[in-house]
Every structure is written in C-alpha cells, then in structure tokens.
Design a protein around this nucleic acid. Sequence first.
DNA 1: TATGAATGAGAATTCATTCAT
DNA 2: TATGAATGAATTCTCATTCAT
Lengths: 203, 203, 203, 203
Amino acid sequence: MPYRSSDKTRQKKDAKRTAMMQAAVRVFAEKGYHAATIRDIVAAAGVAIGTFYFYFPDKETLFVHLYEETADFLLQAIRQAISSRATLPQQIAAGLQAYVNIAVFEPAVIQLLLVGGVGAVPSLTVKQHEFREKLVQIWQRPLQNADTLIAPQNTQRTAEALVGGFDEVVLGLLRHPEAGSQAGTAVQELTRFALRAVGYTGS
Amino acid sequence: MPYRSSDKTRQKKDAKRTAMMQAAVRVFAEKGYHAATIRDIVAAAGVAIGTFYFYFPDKETLFVHLYEETADFLLQAIRQAISSRATLPQQIAAGLQAYVNIAVFEPAVIQLLLVGGVGAVPSLTVKQHEFREKLVQIWQRPLQNADTLIAPQNTQRTAEALVGGFDEVVLGLLRHPEAGSQAGTAVQELTRFALRAVGYTGS
Amino acid sequence: MPYRSSDKTRQKKDAKRTAMMQAAVRVFAEKGYHAATIRDIVAAAGVAIGTFYFYFPDKETLFVHLYEETADFLLQAIRQAISSRATLPQQIAAGLQAYVNIAVFEPAVIQLLLVGGVGAVPSLTVKQHEFREKLVQIWQRPLQNADTLIAPQNTQRTAEALVGGFDEVVLGLLRHPEAGSQAGTAVQELTRFALRAVGYTGS
Amino acid sequence: MPYRSSDKTRQKKDAKRTAMMQAAVRVFAEKGYHAATIRDIVAAAGVAIGTFYFYFPDKETLFVHLYEETADFLLQAIRQAISSRATLPQQIAAGLQAYVNIAVFEPAVIQLLLVGGVGAVPSLTVKQHEFREKLVQIWQRPLQNADTLIAPQNTQRTAEALVGGFDEVVLGLLRHPEAGSQAGTAVQELTRFALRAVGYTGS
DNA sequence: TATGAATGAGAATTCATTCAT
DNA sequence: TATGAATGAATTCTCATTCAT
C-alpha cells in the first residue's frame, strides 16, 4: 500500500519535472541559452523560482541535460527511420523525412540543437561534438552498407558533408513561416542530392 | 603648436582601432558573444575599459560590425577564388581551398561566423540570414553557368546543401588541432563530393 | 504546506516596501536625485541592492512615484485644512499652519518637492508643473470665494505669488535648525502678509 | 612693447575664457548641473576637452563660480533699478521690470539660479543661501525706507515672501513660450500685489 | 514539496579628469 | 596654449542562486 502512494507521488513529481523541462526547451529554443532566464522558464511552466531549484541543480546542468535528451530523441528518430528501410534511396528518403518532420512539428528541437546552444555554454562543446559525430555515423552506416552501389569514397567525409547540407536546408525551411508546405519538395530534392553525392548507381 | 591632428595621430588612432577590433574578434570567437565581456576584450587589447567606449559605441554594435566585416571578407575571398577559374571543377576546388585556407589560418573568422554569433544577438539574425544567402548565391552561380554539364536540379537547393556540407566539414577540421594537415585531403574529397552532388558530367 | 501567500507574507512585504520608500525619501531629500545612489538607498533601508530592484523597477520610476505621492500628501493636507474653515483669514491661517507643520515635522517632504527634485529628471518636469498648478489652485479657491471681501485682482496671479512666497519662507525656516520655534510666528506673519496682499477688507 | 603683446594675449585669453563661460551657462541652464557634461560644454564653446581644464580647475568649481557671477549680475541689476527710483511704487515696479527683463532676455540666468543648480552641488548650498539673503535684503531696503507709508510689519519676512512670490511668477512666465508678451502685465500685477502686501498707503 | 523574498557578484556603460604631444 | 586619446572609479541594473517559512 505505502509503495503505491509513493508511486503516485513519484509519478506526479515526474510529471511536473517533465512539464518544466518541456517549458524550458521552448524557452531555450526561442531565446537562446543566455537570453533565457530562470524566471522565463518558471513562468512558462507556471511554478515558482524555488521549485526550479528543487528539480534541477542549476541552469547550465538543465540545459546540458536538455540538449542531450533532445539530441538522443532526434538521433533515435533518424536512426529508426533509416534502419526500417532496405535500400539506400529509401533509407535516405526516410531519414530525411523523419528529420524534416521533427523540424516542422517540433521546431524547438532543431532550434535547441542547431541554434540556441551553439557556442553558448563551454561545457556543452563536448556534447555537441558527440552529437555531430553520432549524426554522421547514422548517415555513414547506410553508405557503408551500400558499399558496392556507390562511388569509392571516404564515407565518413561524405556523411559529414551530407549532415551539414541537411541541417542547412532544414534551417532554411524554418526561417520561412510556411515551412510545412515546402517540406515535401525539400525532402525529395535533398534525397536526389544525396544520392548523386554518394554516386549511387543502383537501379 | 596646436596638435597635429590629421597626420600621425590619425594613423595611430586607426591602427589602435584596428588592433582593438582584432582583439575583439579573437575574444568573441573564443568565448561567444555573451561570455565575452568588455573586460576580456580590453584586456586582450591591453587598454582600459574607457578606451573601448572611446572607439566603439557599445558591445553589440561592435559585434554586429565585426560580423559584417568578417562575413564580407570571407564572401569576397571565396567569390574571388571561384571567379578566377574557368571550369566548374576548378571553381569548386579553388573556392573550397580559399575557404579552408581561411579556416586554417584565421580560425577566428570561421568561429565568429559559424559559432560565436549564432543565436546571440537578435539584431544579428537578419545579418546572418543575409550572409547565408550570399554564400549560397556564390556557390549557385558556377552551377548555373555549368548548366549543361550538370544534372537538371534546383541549383539553389543544391547550393544550400553544399554550403552546409562545406561548413560542417570545415568545423570538423577546426575541432582537431592538426587542422592544417588534413586540409588538403579535405579539399580534394569535398571537391569530388560536390562534383558528384551536382551530377557533373564534364570529361 | 505550500507557503501562505496572501496572509502575513503579503503584509510583511508591503511593510518592507513602505520602509524602503521612506528610506528612499530621506536619501533623495538629503542628497538630491543624482547624488543619491541606489547603494545609499539600500544602505539606509538595510537591505541588499537586489532587494531594491525586487520592489521597484528602477531609480527614476521610484523617484517620480515618490514625488507624486509626496505631492499628493502635501496638497491634500493643505486642501483639507483650508476647506475645514469658513472665513478667509481662518482658511489662510489653517492652510499655512498645515504647510508649516509638515515642513517642521516632515522636512523631507518639503526638501523632496522643492529642492531634491528640481531640474533633476526630465520626466519629472511635467509632474512639477502639475504640482505647482494644483498648489496655486488650492490657494486660489478661497480667494475666489471671498470675492467681495478682497480687492479686485487677477486671483490666479495672486495665488501664484502667495504660493511662491510661502515656499520661500518655509524653506527659510528649514535652513535654521530651530525651525519649530519660529514656526508659529511665521504662520502669523505670513497670514497677515497674505491678507494684506489680497486686499482683504473683512472686519 | 613686450607688455603690449602680453596684453593682447591676455585679452585673447580672457575672451576665450569668457566665451567658454557663456557656453557653460547655456548648457548648465538647459540641462542642469548633473546632466550637463564637460563634453557638452566644450562642444558648445567649440574647443577641445583639454582646453576646458586649461581655463578651469574642474566642473564643480566652474559651476559655483558661474552661479556666483550670475547671482551678482542679477542682484546688481535689481539693486540698481530700485535705487534709481524715489518712491516705493516706482521702486517696486522698476525692480520687477529689471527682474522680468532678465528672465525674458536672458532666461538662462534665471534657469541657472532657480532651477539648474538647486540641490545639485553640496558646496553650492551656502552660496544659494547667500543669494537668497541678498535678494531679500535688496527688497527689504525700500520697505524700511518707506517705513511710515506701509503697515507695521516684519519687513524681513515680508521681503522674503515677496522674493518667493516674484520667483514663482517669473518661473511661470518662462514655462510658457510667449513669456515676453505676458511680461508687462505680470510686472503690473505683481507691483500691485506687492504694494497691497506691504500695506502701502501712499497717494 | 513549494514558495518567493532576499542576496550580491558581475556586466555594461558613463564621464570627470589627466597628460603626452 | 591647445588637443584629444586614454583612464578607471563609480553607477545602474540583471539574474542565478539560496533559504526561511
């Protein structure tokens, strides 16, 4: 019996914690790390300042944590989309579609990862590198697997360049209000771009 | 002897102003806009705080100015490299070489443009968009000119993706201390990547 | 036990706020707007600098607010004293007595209104004019009501001159440490002065 | 011969010094002591900052000096106007006319004495008191001389009140752009006010 | 757990003043 | 004499963080 109550408490607490983190993501994404104040965050979450420090040790830790979680979410989504397809063109299209979907429906995720946290917190630099590297690895894998269907190349470098290109286009989409309407075209064009870039000769 | 105004004094002042701006670029590049304090900048320049405000109106104005100047410098270097070559492969190789050279010898330039100023100052957002757009245009031009030698495509989108790809690779280079040694290889690989990506069929 | 918000806490906060405002009035009155620093004010109130900004938006806003409140207090006191009497001589004597009382027992009020804030803040100029005008109106009213008992005259001008005269004498009183002892005489003499000045012929 | 040249030099220097002082009066009058910067003053005088410190030791000293000179000028003008007339009504009218003239044609003088310097500089307080006292004495003298023609009274107190009244009205005039057109009426009304206030029974 | 009043280090900016030329 | 570049103390204000309730 007692543990059930404790369970509920735990759940409640987690719910509040999660709500605060979501509020924080929104605020960080919108204003960037430095311009976002704790007051902004607690206001967005509808709690008091003290409550923030009950759930999180400090601003920087929260931000780094948020960055990691968000990065994992994005990586997982792309990884999952790619791994659920069989051929390289399908993998690229699916991975891109997943990425663009997130950009359109959760722009805060992209904002946080590609804009809000860039060069803001020293302790984040390492995490950022890790994130970039993992992203590259995710895109490099299908290239390695399609070994015989693409041009001979340094797949790591190719994946790096693709990742950068995807980011640039996606950020460009977000700069325009009607991001959603362009998304489909962008995915197609980027897919073709990527296939050419790797020298795909299948079909 | 009413103080010679326009001669050496003038030059000295300009020299000092330039020296201070260079110091500021270094500091901004290293720490990012917010983490860089006026104290950091004047310390790096070896002057007093008041001196900063004698030469510049305020932190933000200086930063925006620096960003613009640096952006113009980079754009000009790449534009110039591209326009001095005749064929697409040469143009791409030359443009990339120019870009990578700056990254290797003036890493602060790339740091300032791609990292230190991202999401830092609201009044900079517009300038950043302009910078990205100009960069895209610079790379789009040779594609348009090589019209018949490349695959049919949305050259604007392609240029966007290339620009993003180049940036990512260059930032990757800077992450490693021995950037210089990798630079040559990176230029070659990126050139081939780009030629494939545009579907170049010349020779 | 989520923190009782509206009870004692509220009252305490208001009390502190009031205490800080009183401290601020003292400091502003003593040093004038510019010479009074936030440090002075918080030192006088026995709190930290941050506390000031928790209660008030900034120095100027507080000062203007203080000025308005103080002006209203003084105006109300004089208005009330005058309106509670029936004849002109009584009205003048009562109004003056009220004014002098405040000067003697709350010299900071007069100091703030007539000295500390003069020419200090641009945004205050309008308030100052309003204050002077209201003061003139207060003294003009009894003159208009005693219409038939005083010399024909521009009562507005007369009231202006009386107001200026009263201020000068009151400030003179405050210049001497034993202001209180002279106060009674001053009220009598000023009353007679005013009655002559309006050409009062009653009795 | 040499002394002639030195003489000219002296004159030139004095001329420049005077020009700078006039510029300073204008600036102090317009902005008040604290808001007026040395840069403002030298800009108004058309010289360099260093030049200021060649002629004057520092800002405060200059201001106090300016205050004294301006006060002397005003006192002398009124004193002179009064002493050149024979009867009390003429004396009051002439003194007021002189005062109002200065207010209309040299508003900076009044601004400096009655507004710009009030409560601004601690070291000025004494000078201000002296100024007020001298002004009171100037107006008290004719009252004492008209001893038998006015009501029995404390002429010092009366003079104080008159001085304050005159100031208030004059400041009121300056608040309106068309000060000049109202000046004549104001002098007449104030003269009558003053004559009534002293209980003048002549004629 | 939750609150929000209180803190104070630190940042940007101003401006009177100095001094080498 | 005259200049104006250079200085740095002092000021206002912000904001992450603490802690008594």
